[in-house]
Design a protein around this nucleic acid. Structure first.
Lengths: 195, 195
DNA sequence: CCACATTTTATACAACCGTATACATCCGAT
DNA sequence: ATCGGATGTATACGGTTGTATAAAATGTGG
């Protein structure tokens, strides 16, 4: 394995353990068993290397989400949503650094335009995928805008759930509680519609 | 105005313009028209100053959210939710740096335990406040856990909406689209319940 | 086996960072 | 008026950072 690949995995590990801003060139060198100059040679600069590694990490993140989402095959929508949320919560437990890196990426995006585009694109791809989670069949008559909005809605819930999990796992809602909350909201809306 | 206060507002401005990790002691000094040594004198270290400033910024963020939420007085729940989301979106436009700093705070919390507690506490306070947004009256028979879950649910939507706005304002949903998405989800759940 | 490009290594350097030190200034109490 | 604590300032220092440089090693095609 060449130093180029070694540097990438080393940088990715540093990303998980120390975060983007806290990792130095020497950290990466130590983690990848290479040497300082190889960073410049293969990537031009530390930032370029770290950005490449972050993109990789984000792709891994997306793959993890896909994996979680693939489990939602229940015929009933509420069941499907609940299993999606519990799947996410489980993933937080097993792949925490991955999710932390994802959140950090959002903050970094503000000052790294290239990264921001990458993340925006990932989100753009995630929206339709999530929308089909709700709109299964007979959804041909659903306007594209609405479809997109449903994707955004579920995506927002996912991101928000992530943040709460990272800040305070005790207080953050479980997948079941998320479903319960949605049920209560639906019930309230239905009641006021009946009246 | 003493240098202590000057340093705090300078640090806060740097937080908004450059973000936590990118601001140096000399940035703060330049922004506050003070001098290097005053940081050590008044706060002991740069990190202590910056953390204090970040806490201030986060309080300001909370106040902004309160301001937005106070506008939701419509009797109908869906109307109330929609006005809340449009209020948030409007706020992103006018107070962008505030929201960016909020997101960055999440990422920083992972490595700054004191900050993490602060944020967790803010979230804990926000949950009941948001819950009353849905559960208006006759909600005495709603279990405390469910109430909390509703707060978490709305909070997650808020955070997730923020992130999408910051990554790509064009693709992010409007307040109206969020409401439309919720309506479609409710409709789908109702339909499958009828069948 | 040899020229030649590619890759790896060791080291140096200049810039920047956070903080400590020593000194000046201010200001209220006596 | 002066003393003393509190506050402000100028500057220097040690350490770390990212990157550039030049040499060594490795591989590769003829």
């Amino acid at each position: 394995m060449g130093h180029r690949e070694r540097l990438l995995v080393g940088a990715r590990n540093c990303l998980y353990e120390r975060g983007y801003t806290r990792t130095t060139t020497r950290d990466i060198v130590a983690a990848s068993d290479t040497n300082l100059a190889s960073i410049g040679y293969h990537f031009g600069s530390k930032d370029a290397l770290l950005t490449a590694a972050l993109v990789q990490a984000f792709e891994e993140w997306g793959a993890e989400i896909d994996r979680v989402l693939r489990d939602g095959t229940q015929p009933d929508l509420m069941d499907r949503l609940e299993s999606m949320w519990t799947g996410l919560v489980d993933s937080f437990g097993t792949h925490r650094p991955l999710w932390v890196a994802g959140i950090e990426a959002f903050a970094l995006a503000e000052h790294l335009p290239a990264l921001r585009e990458q993340l925006a694109e990932s989100y753009a791809r995630a929206r339709p995928a999530l929308a089909t989670f709700v709109i299964r069949d007979g959804g041909e008559n659903v306007a594209g805008k609405t479809r997109e909005a449903v994707g955004s809605f579920l995506l927002a819930l996912m991101t928000g759930l992530t943040v709460q999990r990272l800040l305070d796992p005790e207080a953050a809602p479980s997948g079941h509680e998320m479903a319960e909350a949605l049920r209560l909201i639906i019930g309230t809306v239905n009641d006021s519609a009946d009246a």
